[in-house]
């Protein structure tokens, strides 16, 4: 069973990125259970997790949100590459946070970035949670899908 603390670690990794990098905290929306495959936004950063738990954690955000985020970070390059970099950094932060909190229990991959569709490999006992991440008027999603 996934524990609240584990979920919170991932959530905190995500929100802290906004708070620190853009100096504007993100809040979390109403969390819910994933049914079927997740609907992703344009850009998705993924970390694979193995060890004590198996599965993926991803941060998926719409282009509009990333654009504003980049502006807040005083970035003026809004290219496809920069967007990918950005979700990659968010995923990186989530992974760093998890490594700090879970230590050796979790083996966490280097983040990868997807733009477009994605399939979560179905595993027995996989639990999937969607946590909306609200920032300014935008909304992204943190998808935690772990055994």
């Amino acid at each position: 069973m996934l524990h609240e603390q584990e979920l919170k670690t991932f959530v905190e990794g995500t929100t802290s990125f906004f708070e620190v990098a853009a100096q504007q905290p993100a809040s979390i929306g109403s969390p819910y259970l994933l049914e079927g495959t997740p609907a992703v936004h344009e850009y998705t950063g993924i970390i694979n997790i193995s060890g004590k738990r198996e599965g993926v954690v991803m941060f998926t955000a719409p282009k509009a949100m990333l654009t504003v985020l980049l502006m807040k970070m005083q970035e003026n390059d809004f290219s496809h590459e920069t967007m990918r970099d950005l979700v990659g950094e968010v995923a990186n932060t989530i992974s760093g946070n998890a490594r700090r909190d879970f230590g050796r229990e979790f083996v966490i991959s280097v983040p990868s970035v997807l733009s477009g569709q994605l399939k979560i490999p179905q595993k027995p006992g996989l639990r999937s949670f969607i946590i909306p991440i609200n920032w300014r008027s935008h909304s992204a999603k943190l998808v935690v899908s772990l055994t």
């Binding site: 996934l2 919170k8 929306g29 259970l33 949670f129």
Partner: peptide, 16 residues
Amino acid sequence: SGNDFLPMVLKLDELL
């Protein structure tokens, strides 16, 4: 806030 609902969604999943 959304944080308050995290335990609920976990318990809901557990119940299912």
